[in-house]
Design a protein around this nucleic acid. Structure first.
Lengths: 349, 349
DNA sequence: TTGAAAGCGCTACCAC
DNA sequence: GTGGTAGCGCTTTCAA
């Protein structure tokens, strides 16, 4: 059986309290006592029982991270950073995926209230049916990504501005017929899902709406009325979906000057579809992405995209979370992370 | 304050034990009693305290997942599957990244012994300095990937055979000068890391060794003596590293007929470097990968690669883990997952 | 500075 | 079928 504080105390000839003091190092312990205790700790190979500590302290030392789709490279980057930066604060990370079933988000909040995690970083699939909008006391939660609310703290980028910037870049390059890939899917009879009205459950719906807005605004300002024929909806932001949809699109429409894809992952699918169709990028048609995932430098051709400091993004989320965890009643804050356009070969003229 | 079983019991007019029985639904409870208790549970919005339950039961309901590099798409796929399939068994998943510092692996084992996780799925960076080789009682651990040991259960693919198969495929396509990208780096003065002798800490070192072995075997069998000039080492299996190394390689060597990249991620970097250098794939030179990550269908051109059933892989790991968790003394088992070559345009003739 | 004892919330054991 | 009680391992009062 594993050693407990009691065993250690007995071996060291002190009380459990003293052992606890040594372990947590908060109050002063006489050096010789400390020495004896530490020897006993090593000798018995003592490992604290986190369940007991958690029960006593009301904190588990873990945070939850919930992302819609763990397969996206973007998710991998966020996860990587959260794990690294949380580790520095002494936090473990429990990970969840929410896109599969909306129920998951509720389960997660439950877990938080069950003291399994002390806080939660949540990238909601869709705020409208997000669990955070439920009445009832929330645990410490920070939203990341693209939502519009003021109930909980949030870190995000300015999606509208970023989409404006990218669209402007494409116009500046001389492109006129600019398609957008990843615009919100309007549930219709043809989708076959049977949903009527209401919001779609496409991942990143809020982002889709905001990026579409920025895209349209710039086209309007340039006097190029937005053309709904150029807005290509996508029910899931994956290369599979994008390749299929873009492939069908170019089969049945005149080739646009450029495709503004709402994520790099979409752009990967678009590049693939264009290559398959024998369309040269950037010769015949330009492609731009969004997020600047690591792979976007290594696509063929390299991808023009929207970049933001992901480390700052995650660090800010953890800062906000720490704030909430130490003071449940702190006013929710919103942190905006700056973005910029990275120009690569895919939109060269 | 949050409601406890005691509060619920009082409200329902029963004892805490009965509440517990209702919650865990193991023994039979009279329907009307059950009804009263359930009403009280809802009314008080009861959420069980997992720390207390964990302390009492000695199990946390969580498993740990430790991967060397969370940024790799391969890691994202494994994580996605582990989260999904563990969820079905009622397990949460705590995630860790081990490549950054070897110390992490020990911390993880510690966490396991601290009852923070009930079991561990571990993809060791390098078995030689892996924590599992340490003396001392191990928690329930299953290794995934490419190691050679029999201390703990393991799920893997036959790397040697897979590399043989891929190399044979390339030979069958008529390629003769076949380069391998990702062979083990021999620490040398030029690496600048200051390491001398011993094993490298490159991720996937064991895989690198085994795949190199299969590659050499087939070349030898074909009477094409392996040529060390064609074995391209890599200190990290990333697109960045691969693009840089392959770029330098083709600048200073005659172009091989084909590049056998030891992961798809490496192949992505290689494709990028070749594109940058104006080398047509598959026209001037073929490229093959390994792992069949989702993106490999959407590279330009699509990638020939080694595929294996990742879901089966992860499910097997969880099966083995469940086995170990229920019986610490079960004999360690090894499960091999079959593989196959997926032929795509990148190695067309 | 250290010891004794209580209690965090839950469930297993033993009565009834 | 249900209730009382003890105890998981830890930390935190309060005393010494």
């Amino acid at each position: 059986m594993r050693a407990t504080v009691k065993d250690v105390a007995k071996l060291a000839g002190v009380s459990p309290k003293t052992v606890s003091n040594v372990i947590n190092g908060v109050v002063f312990v006489r050096p010789e006592t400390r020495e004896r205790v530490e020897q006993a700790l090593v000798e018995l190979d003592y490992v604290p029982n986190m369940s007991a500590r958690g029960l006593r302290n009301g904190r588990s030392g873990m945070i939850g991270l919930a992302l819609p789709d763990l397969l996206r490279p973007y998710s991998a980057e966020v996860t990587h950073l959260v794990v690294e930066l949380a580790h520095r604060r002494g936090w473990g990370v429990q990970i969840e995926e929410t896109a599969a079933e909306p129920k998951r988000e509720f389960e997660l909040l439950s877990k938080a209230r069950a003291h399994l995690v002390d806080g939660l970083i949540l990238n909601p699939v869709n705020l409208d049916d997000s669990a955070v909008m439920t009445a009832g006391p929330l645990p410490a939660v920070v939203l990341i990504g693209d939502v519009d609310q003021d109930m909980v703290s949030q870190v995000a980028i300015d999606n509208v501005a970023a989409a404006r910037d990218m669209t402007r870049h494409l116009l500046d390059q001389g492109f006129r017929r600019i398609a957008a890939v990843g615009t919100p899917e309007i549930p219709s009879g043809s989708s076959g899902t049977g949903r009527i009205g209401g919001s779609t459950d496409a991942p990143g719906t809020a982002a889709a709406r905001l990026r579409t807005q920025g895209y349209r605004e710039i086209l309007a300002e340039a006097g190029i009325g937005p053309d709904r024929e150029l807005e290509i909806g996508l029910d899931r932001w994956s290369p599979e979906g994008a390749a299929a949809v873009v492939g069908r699109y170019i089969d049945s429409h005149e080739l646009p000057d450029a495709f503004f894809c709402f994520t790099d992952t979409i752009a990967v699918g678009a590049l693939s579809a264009l290559w398959t169709a024998g369309v040269a990028v950037p010769g015949d048609c330009a492609v731009a992405g969004f997020d600047n995932i690591g792979e976007s430098r290594y696509t063929v051709p390299p991808l023009t995209t929207v970049d933001f400091d992901r480390r700052l993004f995650v660090e800010s989320a953890l800062d906000l979370l720490a704030e909430r965890m130490s003071d449940k009643d702190a006013t929710p804050r919103r942190v905006m992370i700056p973005h910029r356009i990275i120009t690569r070969a895919s939109t060269a003229r």
